[in-house]
Design a protein around this nucleic acid. Sequence first.
DNA 1: TACTATGTATAAAT
DNA 2: ATTTATACATAGTA
Lengths: 211, 211
Amino acid sequence: MEDGEPSSTACLPLKEEKLQQNPKTTKGRQKIEIKQINEESKRQVTFSKRRTGLFKKAAELSVLCGAQIGIITFSRRGRIYTFGNADALVENYLRRTPVMLRSHPGGDMANEGEEVDGLKWWEKTVESVPEEEMEEYITALSGLRDKLWTRICQLGGDRMIQMNAPVFQNQMAEIEWKLTDENLTVRNDQGQLGNDGYLDIAAGTFLSQIR
Amino acid sequence: MEDGEPSSTACLPLKEEKLQQNPKTTKGRQKIEIKQINEESKRQVTFSKRRTGLFKKAAELSVLCGAQIGIITFSRRGRIYTFGNADALVENYLRRTPVMLRSHPGGDMANEGEEVDGLKWWEKTVESVPEEEMEEYITALSGLRDKLWTRICQLGGDRMIQMNAPVFQNQMAEIEWKLTDENLTVRNDQGQLGNDGYLDIAAGTFLSQIR
DNA sequence: TACTATGTATAAAT
DNA sequence: ATTTATACATAGTA
């Protein structure tokens, strides 16, 4: 059909003429189904484009409506991309959901307030947690999650609204789980914590979130 | 061009005739400037529409690219709207940024591991923190923010990318501050913490983020 | 809430 | 990265 399709003999180089006249060089944006993109490179391009778009939208929304917005994204590769000030966000979130944040219940508390290496004990990082205290540490961390959620739901009522695009909820949960698993595995492979119990406990934690 | 344009006299009152023929019931979407919307009701409508759009985009992105995405929004009214599983997000975030999470450094640590009211000490909420320990508690919480950020930047490198739409960065910071202030005030008004020092310390914390 | 017309994001191709 | 055509989001209105 393509108007003036070259009938071999008469008008051969029509393609070029067509380009001049109505160049339709691309098919333009095509409709796509919202489902996992399998092709690696394509997925990466899409992720990059849409992440940019998402963050732009978030920025616009925050300016237009004076809302405080934070986005944290864990890419499939395990990279973290954040929008807004993630730590302020997290702190604010935690501030609004009062819980005990202690996550290192073990250890010697006799020298409370004392400084070791010029640091208050609560300023030390997890790396300094001895192997034998790790399990309790992890338990506390898992507890934190539950406490957070419980507390949030309590606060909830009219002050909190949880929104998930209903259609995607199950898929989200699935993906979240898979990726959490992936992240934890990567983390484990890096041997930073090197505690076998870690993955199992975390797995239980997240599995419980999937209905 | 519009086929069959009625030429009344010569060609003068074209406007009206055009309207009749093509009654354009609305002006359609108009371009808007990205700046604070002052009109309350308009802002609310926009917030609602765009928040929905943002969450939809996030859902699509997560499905298409298998990314784990979480969004936390504090509306100007202090409401929290979240997308994804905020607590999982926060926990995952914290998990990836090892820090001491202790935020209640004061208190009697002699009964370490003991249970009070059937709760481990790290399971108790902030409400149970005595007034005289509050300041230290807050200091620890502020410390947490810094620790988080520092640790994140350390982890950073190729595994972390911070993205802010550059154009909006300052505005974001401003808004974040204003809203944080607002939230804290609200919180204070509710008398849940009822500590005068609270606001001041928090203020310093957030002010330091604004360049 | 639902509708239109138009602005904006982006899939595909370069 | 840039371009283009099209799908999608949404400002203003009812």
